[in-house]
Nucleic acid binder design. Sequence first.
DNA 1: AGCTGGACTGTGCACGTTCACAGTGGATGT
DNA 2: ACATCCACTGTGAACGTGCACAGTCCAGCT
Lengths: 344, 344
Amino acid sequence: MTLDSTPVEHSGGRRRPTIKDVAAVAGVSRGTVSRVLNGGHWVSPEALTAVQAAIRSTGYAANRHARSLVTGRANSVAFLLTEPTQLLFEDPNFSVLLRGAADALAKRDMPLLLMVAGTAEERRRVTDYVTAGHVDGVLLISSHAEDPVVASLLREQVPVVACGTPLGYEGKVGYVAADDIAGAREMVRHLRDTGRRHIATITGPLDTPGGVQRLQGYRDELGADYDEGLVAHGDYSRLGGQRAMAELLAARPEIDGVFVASDLMAAGALATLATHDRRVPEDVAVGGFDDSWLAATLVPALTTMRQPFERISSEMVRVLGEVINGEQPATVILPTTLVRRDST
Amino acid sequence: MTLDSTPVEHSGGRRRPTIKDVAAVAGVSRGTVSRVLNGGHWVSPEALTAVQAAIRSTGYAANRHARSLVTGRANSVAFLLTEPTQLLFEDPNFSVLLRGAADALAKRDMPLLLMVAGTAEERRRVTDYVTAGHVDGVLLISSHAEDPVVASLLREQVPVVACGTPLGYEGKVGYVAADDIAGAREMVRHLRDTGRRHIATITGPLDTPGGVQRLQGYRDELGADYDEGLVAHGDYSRLGGQRAMAELLAARPEIDGVFVASDLMAAGALATLATHDRRVPEDVAVGGFDDSWLAATLVPALTTMRQPFERISSEMVRVLGEVINGEQPATVILPTTLVRRDST
DNA sequence: AGCTGGACTGTGCACGTTCACAGTGGATGT
DNA sequence: ACATCCACTGTGAACGTGCACAGTCCAGCT
């Protein structure tokens, strides 16, 4: 309730307490306070409690800028999106991944910086920012092959962990991914187990890991039965799934099962099947991939391969932490699980 | 594997160029370089070009930590989510808002820090971080009334701009919102114009601005025809819309129009209408609110009130900038527009 | 008693920047 | 001729930390 004419000071009006203030209150030196802050080793029990009390009474919070200046570490991480904007909006997986990463980082007391590098201008800005050392590392959401952003980051030796196999940079960059091949195989096996004989697939774009690897799993599982005519290509959008399904039905009306490489495309496929009066699952069984929240709300509810997105994001954060500490980038492949609902 | 004796140098191995290096190359002093960096006033043309050339040749990028340390400004902004996690996943609007905010901030060369304050633990962490001055301001996505986070931020005099009327804090906090009341009125008027006589509504939660204000618009427009029995309440989820529509149909089978306070709930309402064999729009006209990407993909495509999300986010950033500069928080109300599709 | 080493504490410097201030030199006014 | 002003430039002092180093105290050993 103080009404003074002094200039607007954010956050309480008074100067923020520094390590020096804490030291004065606790009756010790700055060095001791600093030691308490960073682990508390080589500090006497009395000094420790005195400092802790002083921190509470002063409401001290370390100035991260000063700390970063001297340590050379930003203590923050970028979440970098190099996808065209459309996908971020439509694809529910991004939100889940983002949320999971923010959570995992919060536990390490690190903020997450969201950066988007769609246009050339944005790419320049982002690489400038990142290579200037303002973040310690990058969580990369970039599925398209030969991404130029990856090249720049690699050149500048910025710690990077990708989500999904980084096509064109395998072995150069650590990544965390679901087991696309095994997952696709399991879904195809499941469709076969329900008696389907003419199983088609709608793939993702073939310059994305999910596109090539889920197709490979489909192919591997069918073996000699693989038939190129049963393969249609989508772009991970609902509309793309719709179109691909229409193509398949036109070319091969005998189809009685479809493995669709994403739930969103599966939603489109279901719409097409409905307008073509094919009952699901009676006439055609449909299997998706992702298990996004979408899957359960579709009619009929979609059978799909669950990707463990929460684990993916937390593993990405863990691996990135290792890379930042100078360890070799690891590769983590996580298992998918079949979630059976009403569409098969 | 803690820090070892050979510290790993990211980004090229060599020391990053400082303002001093630039000064040396340009043959001027640090002060002059600094002046060039901050606007270039009181700098001779020759010095200016020399410094610019030196910046390019050295690949200099200012160290934001050092700058923040001395200026006391973080040059970054938090995007704070206080909603339960479920909504972030389902509601496509969040992604759009987030993306828009990141874009608008990028133009000011400011990174966006994503923070989530769902649990008490997260709330504590976030308020600590923010009040420690590590961001200059907060873009607040918090629709529920009496949000405790808002109280803490206000107490600490942190610059805040909310999205939507901050119930319980009107007048204390600046905000940007779509004109919910006028939008609701227009939709109801539109339903009436198409000849509907028994127009129901499905509201959002009544502790959110969209919940109360869209209901108020509905009520205002109907005037004497307002009938409490035609009001059902949802929670902005698809399932909630589904349930509310079922209630309405059971209680008032004569309903021939519904104004649903969000597209996601409208999706649920459409599902219920389909299972009850009511044709849309022949038997019942359905109007939504938001115009998220969902609206166009529903069957039938949804008539809805478009919220200008891109403008909302960019206005939020603009107003927050003003508040940070010490100006009084402004209130911005943006118009909505009717997007007519197939459901009316 | 003197030496050694371990546990703890304090001090000064460095990090890279901005800002206030003190110059500098030339043009202009008296 | 001298003061004044203007346009520009350089310098030193912060900002708040962490870290290396030096110093103190005390116990245990020779």
